[in-house]
Design a protein around this nucleic acid. Structure first.
Length: 154
DNA sequence: AGGATGATGAAG
DNA sequence: TTCATCATCCTA
């Protein structure tokens, strides 16, 4: 599991940095919703909106450990030859899970994509590192990974 | 190391 | 209406 935080208007790496636009509308909306954006002409990335309505701030979901639907994910990700590669990056993750911009703005509690509490939660240690793939504020320690976890990018 | 690929936002 | 930029992935 791997995530990155993007702050509101103070974070030059964040889409919300320039303020409210058509694209950033859902980031400024209520928390608990999905922000899905299109990048590099081919990929989509999933974020969770985290700040109260009117403020901007979200978390980019960069990688996760696939637990269910493995066969479906393998079909969607023919380039992934190992289970660890199915969702080990923000673009790979959305491909594996079939997440597209149609889910932009979806409610993560009641909508078609739901964030659930795990049935069994095992303890883990969080490791903090700089964010990946950005130019502005590149040294801010806002990337969080489960320590020693195989299911992360890179 | 480089190419695929198109939306976005700002400038003209 | 152009233009640079971009929170990426894959093949070589």
């Amino acid at each position: 599991m791997e995530v990155e935080a993007y702050l509101g208007t103070s974070d030059r790496a964040a889409h919300s940095w320039r303020g409210l636009t058509d694209r950033t509308r859902v980031i400024f909306g209520p928390p608990g919703h999905a922000y899905v954006y299109f990048i590099y002409g081919m990929y989509e990335c999933l974020n969770f909106v985290c700040e109260p309505e009117g403020q901007a701030g979200c978390v980019l979901i960069r990688a996760l450990e696939p637990l269910a639907g493995l066969a479906t994910m393998r079909r969607r990700r023919p380039a992934a030859h190992r289970t660890e590669d199915l969702a080990s990056g923000p673009g790979k993750l959305t491909l594996a899970m079939g997440i597209t911009r149609k889910l932009n703005g979806a409610d993560l509690v009641t909508g078609p994509l739901q964030l659930l509490k795990p049935r069994h939660e095992s303890p883990f240690e969080v490791q903090t590192t700089p964010r990946i793939g950005i130019t502005h504020c590149a040294d801010w320690p806002l990337r969080f990974v489960i320590a020693d976890n195989r299911f992360v990018s890179r």
